[in-house]
Write a protein that binds this DNA or RNA. Structure first.
Lengths: 355, 355
DNA sequence: TTTAGCACTCTCCGTTCCCGAGTGCCAACG
DNA sequence: CGTTGGCACTCGGGAACGGAGAGTGCTAAA
């Protein structure tokens, strides 16, 4: 059954008022908020109807109305006014995106913090690469006992490790190893690195000291962990909300969030720019059943994509949050797509004169 | 005034009982806990005395006793029995320290998590290097538009950055730059990198394209941020404690902790192996006035040192926490002092067969 | 000096009670 | 017939109250 214009107006007023106040909304309040010309009595009739239809709920007989998940869903799909970001907000986001950091994962983490600050809800970031491989190897000789492994991965992340060994080797050995690894270890995934491959590499390099294993171990470790990562920030913001006045409830949700494995199971596939909203029971995880999650995807180029999102109570300012996340994800995609122009290039950063 | 043997026994019983129960301790309970032969009435007299002397406090006239900061202090200094770690605990710590990670900062972060798990209190880590300098430069040529900067810093951390440029350069140029930077930028602190130095380096390298600035910027950025870092984990554990049943209180403390700048002001100088305990009002920061902090220092070699600690209510199992932190810090020092033996060397890690 | 006894104090918790917000329904109205 | 004012009703929440229990301080006796 289709809702009348007036019913929609009323539903919107209830949702928005409840988002602001966190308290059941009465008929009088709706009248004021929606600037309706009819009387509270009329509104009561409509409220009763909306309640019958499952858009609203009553905590108890003589209380005001509270939106149900169904109510929020309708609100998000149809009633919500697209919220434009203020110049201030876009300016803040742009500025923060501009002074980004050397490492990709730190950058994403920072963006997460930014989302927390802007929405004052906990933010989560998830990044995943379809298949990470090594694009290039380098071994830097330091002295006869130590060298640095430098790996350039797809997605243009660089990983490295300093290795000290209890025996000595020559610069030549390293060069040979470097060549062999570049030949046989590039472009392959973690699963392709078998004991046989390592064996044959060892023979090809004429390595008698086990250097090959050391390097191979690092490659495996790197590929295994470089694939993605999840990060949560600003969990403490939940504690400000009235729905988490019970520390236990907050604790359960925070615990759930801090286990990165849980986040991986969030549904990912949204189009870039699009924002996905999961309201209360629409979440698969039990711990999120009375919270909402707003997600936006970003594109990091080179088969890498990621999600940035926030978690909050079902009573959440969906339009503001969605607008902000969408803008952030868009900005991040743009930033990463451009092949990562050199930071600091052109403007020399001397400490102190930067900001 | 010196406390009698019996008074000390009683004080200890009160502190330990309160640590366990979080509730004011009565005379009968003390009698049982301390296994005293005298009657509750006698103990009441002693409790009254201890209260007069400021070691204990009474929430209200007819309640049991609660230790004051002064009481905890005496307990920590004199009364506390050294807690030996169980084999299980040392085993856990050793195992976790063993499978450490490639990057130093990740390692420290992991150790923080470990401290949280073992003590079930929020853990903090702070690391600081007296003066970070670059020990060695390398520039890896990728193609005519891109290269990787690799910096080996004191403390044997390696930092890197991938640089794409909108114009092309030759492998030769990079080699020349590399040599020049190795000559003039190594061994100097961030503050020594002046515009003049960059200018003269640029001239020495015959660099006409501004590559020098790009690299210098990265060096400055790296030195500025590599100096140290703070990290907090497990804040949510506070929510389990009865003293934080007020979400606001928890929120304030967590907020304080999550601002890394605050942590830097914690007093640092402890001898390695020694553990520093700050009880309630002994803390300088207002936000910590009714919490306690236990800190242990570790030595990361090469002028690097750090602190690992936990934060909890004044009612904290000091002896267990101190023993654990001390052991962790000791293990970490040993691990880092040995010049970081190669991870994975000798035991090849193939995913899946590791644990 | 220790102990038993006792009166006293204070918190905690359950009960009761009232207030007010808000509802549903009904009858009247344009 | 939709809308409106009126009214009785419901229910949660906070204040007020009271008893139970835990623990104390004091006193007097051992």
């Amino acid at each position: 059954m289709e809702l009348s214009q007036r019913q929609k107006k009323i539903l919107r007023a209830v949702v928005e008022e409840y988002i602001d106040s966190a308290e059941p909304v009465g008929s009088r309040t709706v009248q004021q908020r929606a600037a309706l010309t009819c009387s509270p009595a009329t509104i009561r009739n409509e409220l009763a109807e909306l309640t019958r239809e499952g858009y609203l709920d009553q905590p108890h007989t003589s209380a005001g109305r509270v939106p149900t998940a169904k109510g929020y869903r309708l609100y998000v799909n149809e009633l919500m006014r697209e919220r434009e970001l203020t110049d201030d907000e876009t300016e803040t986001i742009n500025r923060k995106l501009r002074d980004r950091v050397a490492q990709l994962d730190k950058l994403i983490e920072n963006v997460g913090h930014m989302a927390t600050e802007l929405t004052s809800y906990p933010a989560l970031t998830i990044s995943a690469a379809a298949a990470v491989t090594v694009k290039r190897f380098d071994l830097i000789y330091l002295d006869q006992n130590s060298f640095i492994i430098v790996l350039l991965l797809t997605g243009d992340t660089v990983k490295n490790k300093l290795v000290h060994l209890p025996f000595s080797f020559s610069q030549n050995t390293l060069q040979r190893l470097s060549a062999v690894f570049n030949a046989s270890f590039t472009g392959i995934g973690e699963e392709a690195i078998t004991a046989e491959l390592i064996d044959s590499t060892e023979r090809a390099a004429g390595d008698t000291m086990g250097l090959t294993s050391v390097i191979a171990s690092f490659v495996i470790e790197t590929l295994a962990t470089a694939g993605g990562g999840a990060n949560v920030s600003g969990e403490a913001n939940l504690l400000k909300l009235p729905e988490f006045k019970d520390p236990d409830k907050a604790h359960r949700l925070i615990n759930y969030l801090s286990d990165a494995a849980n986040l991986a199971s969030l549904p990912g596939g949204t189009d870039f720019g699009d924002v996905k909203v999961l309201i209360g029971p629409e979440n698969a995880a039990l711990e999120l059943k009375d919270s909402s999650v707003v997600l936006a995807s970003y594109n990091a180029g080179d088969n890498m994509r990621g999600i940035i999102g926030v978690v909050g109570p079902t009573r959440m300012d969906y339009s503001a949050v969605a607008a902000k996340l969408s803008y952030i994800a868009g900005g991040l995609s743009k930033l990463l797509a451009g092949g990562a122009p050199p930071s600091g290039y052109g403007k020399l950063m001397i400490k102190g004169d930067d900001k």
